[in-house]
């Protein structure tokens, strides 16, 4: 197969990892948590929203789509906000590890619930966007890929503007750097943190609605997209939004490019994770000790 075709296709898939990576990085920076449930809440929002379709048969298709997507965003934001509330209420002072472990537990719950609720039957979760955005010969760039890449960049830019240029951003930076100090200054830390959870959850709900059922086979497989997403965020060490986008595209491009070599189908699953580990080891080569002093 043509290497360039494979690369472009991989980049389209990488756009999704980039969005997830940006979401993970944002949460890590602002709420001190690696949210392993980040994709799961989006999947739940999207898959539950289609339960509303039978109630909307009378509505025109555009209205129906808009309502369903709105429900997906709302449900995802709510579940995410609930998790954020648990974190902010009981684990405000806990370590990043403990806070993240909660999202591992909730991931386990959501995966199992998705088995119970959605089974492995086809779900009529029609994607918002279908088809190629532009085609050149065999090379096709998908609409979904373009939309998700725009989303990733837009979220990153919006986050940058909010954090660096607005009073809200000052407060957000305060709660992530010096939570206790921020509390003393009268910042409503809990509300702000839950707010971050709600916003990121809503974004994930939107993204999963865009992909619909054209990505992975079922809810559970879709939830496991958090793994390449986290790999993307790792490239930016859960700190850098631009690097998370680069990381997502990198993982996607690697996976895509490797499909051009069918003989190494086994290595295909390993090369992205190995590349990221090597990159990180190089990047963190000076982190000999767990603490600076």
């Amino acid at each position: 197969m043509n290497f360039v075709v494979a690369l472009v296709v991989g980049l389209s898939a990488g756009a999704l990892y980039a969005v997830i990576g940006v979401g993970l990085t944002l949460m890590s920076v602002l709420t001190r948590v690696i949210n392993f449930s980040i994709v799961a809440v989006g999947v739940f929002g999207a898959f539950l929203s289609i339960r509303a379709v039978p109630l909307l048969v009378q509505a025109p298709p555009e209205v129906r789509t808009a309502v369903v997507v709105a429900i997906a965003v709302l449900v995802a934001a709510t579940i995410s906000g609930l998790l954020g509330w648990i974190e902010a209420t009981w684990l405000a002072e806990a370590s990043t590890t403990a806070r993240s472990a909660v999202t591992v537990a909730s991931l386990l719950m959501l995966i199992s619930l998705s088995f119970v609720l959605f089974g492995s039957r086809p779900q009529p979760l029609r994607p918002l966007l279908v088809g190629p955005a532009f085609v050149a010969g065999d090379i096709a760039v998908t609409k979904v890929g373009v939309a998700l890449l725009i989303t990733a960049v837009a979220v990153a830019v919006a986050a940058w503007i909010v954090i660096r240029r607005t009073p809200l951003g000052v407060q957000l930076r305060a709660i992530s750097d010096r939570q206790t100090a921020a509390e003393l200054l009268g910042v409503n830390v809990k509300a702000l943190q839950i707010g971050v959870w709600v916003v990121v959850g809503g974004i994930m709900g939107l993204c999963i609605s865009i992909i619909g059922n054209t990505g992975a086979a079922d809810a559970t497989s879709m939830i496991t997209l958090v793994i390449p997403g986290a790999a993307a965020a790792l490239v930016g060490a859960f700190k850098s939004l631009p690097m998370a986008i680069v990381g997502g595209l990198l993982v996607g491009a690697l996976q895509g490019a490797l499909t051009a070599f069918p003989s190494i189908t086994l290595l295909r699953d390993w090369i992205p994770i190995v590349v990221i580990i090597l990159f990180l080891l190089w990047n963190q080569r000076k982190e000999v000790w767990d603490v600076a002093r």
Partner: peptide, 21 residues
């Protein structure tokens, strides 16, 4: 023929691209 599919695959982009060729 492409036997490289796995259960629960997260994306079929690569497999489809290969077919197109």
């Amino acid at each position: 023929i492409d036997f490289s599919l796995t259960r629960g695959q997260a994306s079929y982009a690569g497999n489809v691209a290969a077919l197109k060729g």
